[in-house]
Simulated scan of single mutants.
Amino acid sequence: MPKQAIIPPGTGVPLAPYVPGTLADGILYVSGTLPFDKDNNVVHAGDASAQTRHVLETIRGVVEAAGGTMDDVTFNHIFVKDFADYPKVNAVYAEFFPGVKPARYCIEANLVKPDALVEIASIAHIGKK
C-alpha cells in the first residue's frame, strides 16, 4: 500500500518527525494539529474559540491538499487542556461540520505547549465516493 505525505503550501517545520497528513488507499490521516503559526508559536493565547477555529482551518488545509473537503472527515480525536473550554470548542466545531457529524472523542490532556488549549487529529475518507 503506497502512502503519500500531504504537506499544504506554507506549512512550517514540525516540532517532531511527522507530516501534517498521510494519504493511503483513499484514507487521510491528519496529524494532531495545534494552534501554531508557521514558526510553531501558539496563536490566540487564552482564546479557546479562536484556537479551535485556527486548528480546524489548518486541518481543512490538509484535507483540501489531499483532494477532499471537511465533509469527508469521518473521525476526530479532540484534546482540550481544560474541560471548561468544551462548550467553546463545540460551538466552533459545529460551524465546520454542519451536516452529518464525524464520530469523535474528546479528552482533557496536557498539550505540548502551555498556551495551547486544543489539539485535534482527524481521519478523512477521500477515496471512492
Rank of each mutant, 00 (worst) to 15 (best):
M1Q: 06
P2G: 14
P2Q: 13
P2N: 10
Q4D: 06
I6M: 05
I7A: 04
I7M: 05
I7S: 03
G10T: 08
T11M: 13
G12D: 12
G12C: 12
V13A: 12
V13K: 13
V13D: 09
P14E: 08
P14M: 07
A16H: 11
P17F: 09
Y18P: 01
V19C: 02
V19A: 04
V19L: 03
G21Y: 07
G21F: 06
G21A: 04
L23P: 03
L23K: 04
L23W: 09
A24Y: 02
G26P: 08
G26D: 00
G26K: 07
I27C: 03
I27P: 02
L28I: 02
L28G: 01
V30M: 06
S31K: 06
T33E: 10
L34P: 00
P35T: 15
P35C: 15
K38I: 10
D39G: 02
N40K: 10
N40V: 06
N41K: 14
A45M: 06
A45F: 00
G46Q: 02
A48W: 12
A50C: 01
Q51Y: 11
H54V: 00
H54G: 00
V55I: 01
L56Q: 05
E57N: 07
T58G: 05
T58F: 10
R60G: 01
R60C: 05
V63P: 09
E64Y: 04
A66H: 15
G67F: 11
G68F: 04
T69C: 08
M70D: 06
F75D: 07
F75T: 11
F75L: 14
N76S: 05
N76V: 03
N76C: 05
N76R: 06
H77A: 14
I78S: 03
D82H: 15
D82P: 02
D82M: 08
F83A: 03
D85R: 09
Y86D: 01
Y86L: 02
P87R: 13
K88E: 03
V89I: 15
N90S: 15
N90M: 15
N90L: 11
N90Y: 11
A91N: 01
V92Y: 00
Y93A: 01
A94Q: 14
F97S: 02
F97A: 06
V100G: 13
P102L: 09
A103P: 01
R104I: 00
R104N: 15
Y105F: 15
Y105I: 14
C106I: 14
C106N: 09
I107T: 08
A109V: 07
A109W: 14
A109M: 14
N110D: 13
K113E: 09
K113L: 12
P114E: 13
D115Y: 07
A116T: 12
V118Y: 11
I120P: 05
S122M: 11
S122C: 10
I123P: 03
H125P: 00
G127L: 11
K128H: 12
K128F: 15
K128P: 02
